[in-house]
Design a protein around this nucleic acid. Structure first.
Length: 207
DNA sequence: TGCCAGGCCCTCTTTAGGGCCTT
């Protein structure tokens, strides 16, 4: 059966101690929502103790303090739960290459893996919203007039906003294609299409 | 103590450099 956007999809976001798991950085929070038929049907949120102190920059950037993390469950425990949550669903993140690196690293530490494929809302937005002032998550939420009343840079909130952005993009793509359902695989392909050929690709599919 | 990355994408490009994104 072809995977479509109407099927279950996990939109996730990590908060971390830094930018690179290869340089010793660890996850400190995971947030995710499950989308089904264009609606959030399930949520996951977990702070996790990385076993090291986070910098003042990260405390200020995320609002997640060392005190909060000192009483959190260890990464291994939370990531076991998260692996069960995502199952074999396909995955979406804003700048997915970043979240994928941390997901791979943290699941690798507990000898877990996943079967789903990643799509990147950042890459899709660069094709679909070429006129946006920039393609940061917060900017795109404003650009699309998506209601936002929470705190950016917390994992669950960012995953909720990414999910709303994703659904807006799927709707806009579907409108251009004059269809109701857009296959996940098509959106993955669109994310790799040269910008100047996006319109032609959508028109071709429509025709 | 202070520092660190990597993939994508554009252009003043392709034997490169630098900005955008993520924390």
């Amino acid at each position: 059966m072809t995977q479509t956007c109407a099927d279950s999809l996990i939109v996730l976001d990590f908060e971390t101690t830094g930018l690179s798991p290869d340089m010793g950085d660890r996850a400190i929070e995971i947030g995710a929502v499950r989308l089904q038929k264009g609606e959030v049907v399930e949520r996951f949120q977990g702070l996790m103790n990385p076993g090291k102190r986070v910098s003042r920059f990260i405390e200020n950037y995320t609002g997640i303090t060392n005190q909060m993390l000192s009483s959190a469950a260890p990464c291994e425990e939370v990531m076991h739960q998260f692996a069960n949550f995502i199952g074999d669903s396909n995955l979406v993140a804003h700048n997915a290459s970043f979240d994928k690196r941390f997901l791979d690293a943290e699941l690798g530490r507990i000898s877990q893996s996943y079967q789903g494929q990643f799509a990147c809302s950042l890459l899709v937005s660069r094709r679909v919203y070429q006129q946006a002032p920039n393609h940061k998550l917060g900017s795109l939420v404003s650009y699309k007039n998506i209601q936002s009343e929470g705190q950016f840079h917390r994992a669950l909130y960012d995953s909720e906003m990414t999910a709303k952005l994703w659904m807006a993009m799927v709707d806009d793509i579907a409108s251009q294609m004059d269809t109701k359902e857009v296959p996940f695989s098509f959106i993955q392909k669109l994310a790799k299409t040269p910008k100047n050929k996006v319109e032609a690709v959508l028109s071709k599919v429509k025709g």
